[in-house]
Design a binder for these strands. Structure first.
Lengths: 264, 264
DNA sequence: GATTGTGAAGCCCTTCACAGCA
DNA sequence: TGCTGTGAAGGGCTTCACAATC
């Protein structure tokens, strides 16, 4: 998963666990696909397979929403689509602004998955005056100066930040001051927000780094190595820290088997 | 955070918890920033603040890597940067291919965060013949026909899928058959892969849906409502399911207090 | 007979609080 | 004295397994 969690410890609103909330969109997508194929009912086993989870988890998740299934039969697809949509708040219209219309911002503006889920791109905002008026995904880009006005005029409560890291906090502050209370952050920065504002973060390079970790592990297993400790010291590393090769003491890895260099 | 977890139950490689692995990139980014400002040492408290976590968690995380700090002093920034980089496997070069060069694929190709972390975009691949040869982010796009050859020639083990949902599984199969063992999936589909292949998923619309859930909750609290149950029935909903308004039985929400309609 | 809904058990992760060390 | 490293406690999520229900 991309990363992001809120600063607040997990509101756990009305008893629905965060982990369950995070899976509801998955179920919804699988159900929508079934609905389009006019499938009337589905069992927890089938739906779980389509959503990529196990069936016990799915049933437990649904139990937090209520008793929406029929024993011996399964779940009514249309009914469940509606219940989940309602629970997620997708039965209402959510105007969204995207700030930072670079490659990523444009990709987001063009992303069909938003409109089909009750999200409406109310405005695209960029700091570059040259962008102003240029249409992206059929929507003219507006200048950052108008940010506050746009938020208020459209009653926007969700903002998407796709600016460079350096501008993110400032944009965030302005969004929050103007009334936005939920932020989806694509900039590689930790945003500071007041209580009551939710931030979720999507970090492209973090996901790759997690994959690299496991990939490295696989390579090690193949050759009988136990892990990165096997490649000892900074020699051959792409970023050897010079300060690290000064004093040497007995530093231990978690297995206590590999001495390493120590900082001065 | 984006979502994605692997199908396999959490490799927990060499005793480092998944949750810790997922935070290492955050620490690394914060440390890199300190390093650029030539800060020599940092305490768990300071670093935790910069990374957006609490200090106990950070110390616990680092304890899985080894004893890399100095009591009474803190952590040596350069040394820690190196240790974490090594643990994540970033001291080696990871050639990556991006498949699907639409808006998102182009954004990814241009994303600086990759190159600076040991990831090298080895090739851009697209199914559209008209794209072939066109440079994106300075790299000429190649046609899907050459996928297998590219993977093998470059020893690629990590693939990024940024195609439409319909093409994702097929691309995934070909990547895996050609030798890719880690996949970062941006397409809104559940990918099926053989054992030994890791998949992480980043889903843009899912993140927004999770925000909408909490946003709705906030709105409910303000007006004294308890939650979505307060708006009863499909009336006024954007997607009212017709099948849902036929038979009515005593359906209960989790609090057992709100009757709802039921499928036929 | 089939499938849901759910207590109970187990696991993993977070947080606490303090011993250990520089 | 100050800060790390970590056992222990606590909490949340997943999984099991079966009673309840159609």
């Amino acid at each position: 998963m991309a990363t992001g969690r809120t600063h607040r410890p997990a509101t756990r609103s009305r008893g629905i666990p965060e982990a369950t909330v995070a899976r509801l969109p998955l179920y919804l997508r699988a159900l929508t696909a079934l609905s389009e194929r006019s499938v009337p009912t589905v069992s927890s086993e089938e739906l779980a397979a389509a959503a990529g989870v196990n069936s016990a988890k799915l049933r437990k998740d649904f139990s937090y929403l209520g008793s929406y299934g029929t024993r011996g039969v399964g779940y009514d697809v249309e009914y469940l689509v509606y219940q989940i949509s309602r629970e997620l708040g997708l039965t209402q219209d959510w105007p969204v602004v995207i700030v930072g219309i670079g490659n990523l911002g444009a990709a987001l503006a063009n992303y069909g998955g938003f409109a089909s889920r009750g999200f409406r791109v109310a405005a695209l905002i960029d700091a570059d005056p040259a962008m102003a008026g240029k249409p992206v995904a059929g929507i003219p880009v507006q200048h950052t100066d108008e940010l506050e006005q746009i938020i208020q005029d459209n009653g926007v409560s969700i903002g998407v930040i796709a600016t460079p890291a350096g501008a993110a906090q400032q944009v965030c502050d302005r969004l929050v001051a103007a009334g936005v209370t939920s932020i989806l952050n694509f900039a590689p920065t930790v945003l500071t927000v007041p209580d009551g504002v939710d931030v979720r973060k999507v970090d492209l390079s973090i996901e790759l780094q997690i994959l690299a970790f496991h990939e490295q592990r696989k390579a090690g297993e193949e050759t009988g190595q136990t892990g990165p400790e096997a490649t000892e010291g900074p020699a051959g590393a792409t970023t050897p820290p010079d300060r690290a090769v000064t004093a040497a003491t007995d530093r231990k890895g978690p297995d206590g088997d590999v001495p390493a260099v120590m900082p001065a």
